[in-house]
Design a protein around this nucleic acid. Structure first.
Lengths: 342, 342
DNA sequence: GGTCAGGCTGCACTCGATTGCAGTGAGCGG
DNA sequence: CCGCTCACTGCAATCGAGTGCAGCCTGACC
């Protein structure tokens, strides 16, 4: 408990010799026009002098607005999310909002509980970065009119605005790059079939190899159980067993690509001489790997910022149509890709 | 705005046929003894049935408790912090608290503003991970009775509880490891002199080399301007200019060590054959570097969890004496350290 | 049967800010 | 000189929950 009681609106009013109601109006830019300009100035000066800060709870109680939004992410520890969160906060803060972060660990049970927790904290909207493909909870929240924006993953069917990287374009860039280097037998280690990104990237890969007349053997596409190094390693081992002649890999994301590195070490495969790899996400410090990983850079901070802006819009005008945005990404060519040995 | 108005205490009371006051008492475990057990049960059942959630704002308004604590960190994007935050949240959540994260970017101005923002949001306490050595603001908050815990950095002079890794012990482990390998001329690229960690680690390094009768030339210790790769690279270039005979480096943290890798590449130095490096922090994916970085692993999540526990204690009993905790860390030996060429 | 104690419950006010409505006074036109 | 308008300000209720106090009712005891 602070030694000095923080001043209340009543204190300001008393000190300025006006009624609390007048002080309230003077301090709120929206209602300031209702009070005499001179009075308003005086009140504001007094408030400044006393270091007055409106109590957000009292205000929220009356206005039914909390000035907070919920950020639902699988796990903050995943290096993917901090930049997104940062981008979100950077937009939220100047708007007078704060973000409440919860981690779901991709557990639907936990996700449900966490979202309940956020709602009980009266968040005004949700930015959701978890996204299993099938998502009845999202649909329900949507129906209840909770403003929502999804980032990074795109829900199927449900009409929720989302900000996602343009996965298809990214995969095309990766395939183009490898094809240009001369690769013909390119494998894809796709993300879990339960995630929208996993599915979207796999589809994009299939289209890309078809369009470029490369090897379209379905065996070249292996689905990982999870977005992890371990799952990536397992998938690659499987792929190598079936198609040992593959010369390049498009990994579903960077972690899966890292799993490939483990298999390379394990089997004595020389990357990039014998095998090229492209990752997806451009996690930090990939340039320090051996070899530095070629990958697709996603503008994470921009994604977060854009999502926050959209959510604020949705909160302000709940009835506006849902709009979704695809953000362009860029291929960062490093040392893990090279022409195939001929 | 949810289509279905969330039920209020009054709704529960009406549905249960009691006065709101009674309902309030029945729902609050602390006052439940005041109401008839049967009535209490009925009220609770009705509340459950309606899906009643107390409005935290109304409650907070009355009780002057927000159920939130502020997390002040320099930059969430720094891989050091997400695990700490995660550890904090994991403790806070079951206790019914939530964390409000702000990023200061190590800018005192911004830090001040952000802390003001947190206070205006009525946080009940602060977990502070920024820490320039000289910190009048902390002292002021301390005097005002704001419950506070510092993580990772330790304030000088001010009597604030803190949770920090045992930097001195860590540095000793690093120096021991290098000395055991046979190194005699070990350099230290220390963190900024304005940070408590920078200073503590440098002091520990000086003591360690002295105690082990290694080369104590002050020129072997170079201070970096920032905790960054660039600053690390600059410092190493400087060190190599002055003492080209150095065979091992203890870096102030992993980023500084990464800066060393850049210089190695630039000057064609073979690590670890010609030069060993030890980092500090064990950031993610260091094992994927070339060579994998030997470093000191800090139990970040534990630090966060411990800090959160301490803060909750401090909130519950504001008058308890400040207590500080040093957490042990462990040396992770990887490929960046080897015996010197003789 | 009367009295008193004690267990429950309800009343009413409070937290701090917002806001519809009423009232005051000045200024102006008729 | 009267009345009306308009700008401004004050009053009081409100948001939802918590809590001191008073009162009721029941049961026990004399």
């Amino acid at each position: 408990m602070p030694a000095v009681q923080t001043p209340t609106l009543r204190d300001v009013a008393d000190a300025a010799g006006v009624h609390p109601a007048t002080a309230s109006r003077a301090l709120n830019p929206a209602t300031r026009g209702l009070v005499n300009a001179e009075t308003a100035r005086r009140v504001m000066k007094v408030a400044e002098g006393l270091g007055y800060r409106p109590n957000p709870m009292a205000r929220g109680l009356k206005t039914a607005k909390s000035g907070t939004v919920g950020l639902v992410i699988p796990d903050l520890t995943n290096p993917l999310f901090p930049p997104i969160v940062r981008g979100i906060e950077d937009v939220l803060e100047p708007a007078g909002y704060s973000g409440l972060i919860v981690n779901t660990d991709n557990d639907p049970q936990r996700e449900h509980a966490q979202i309940e927790l956020l709602r009980s904290r009266q968040v005004e909207g949700l930015i959701v970065a978890t996204a299993l493909l099938d998502h009845p909870l999202m649909a329900k929240l949507q129906r209840e009119g909770v403003p929502m924006v999804m980032v990074n993953r795109r829900p199927d069917g449900v009409d929720i605005p989302s900000i996602t990287p343009d996965d298809a374009a990214g995969i095309e860039m990766a395939v183009d790059h490898l094809a240009d280097l001369g690769h013909r037998r390119i494998g894809h280690l796709s993300g879990p079939a339960t995630t929208s990104t996993g599915v979207a990237r796999r589809r994009a890969f299939r289209n890309a190899v078809r369009d470029r007349d490369l090897d379209v053997d379905p065996a070249l596409v292996v689905t990982c159980e999870h977005w992890t190094e371990e799952a990536g390693a397992i998938a690659l081992r499987h792929l190598l067993d079936v198609r040992p002649d593959v010369t390049a890999i498009v990994a579903g994301n960077d972690l899966i690509a890292l799993g490939c590195y483990d298999v390379f070490a394990e089997r004595g495969i020389d990357c990039p001489r014998e095998m090229s790899v492209v990752g997806f996400n451009d996690m930090p410090f990939l340039d320090k790997l051996a070899p530095p990983l070629t990958t697709l850079a996603i503008p994470h901070q921009q994604i977060g910022a854009e999502a926050a802006r959209m959510l604020l819009d949705a909160i302000a005008e709940p009835d506006r149509a849902a709009r979704s945005v695809l953000l362009p990404l860029s291929l960062v060519v490093r040392g893990s890709t090279a022409p195939p040995v001929t």
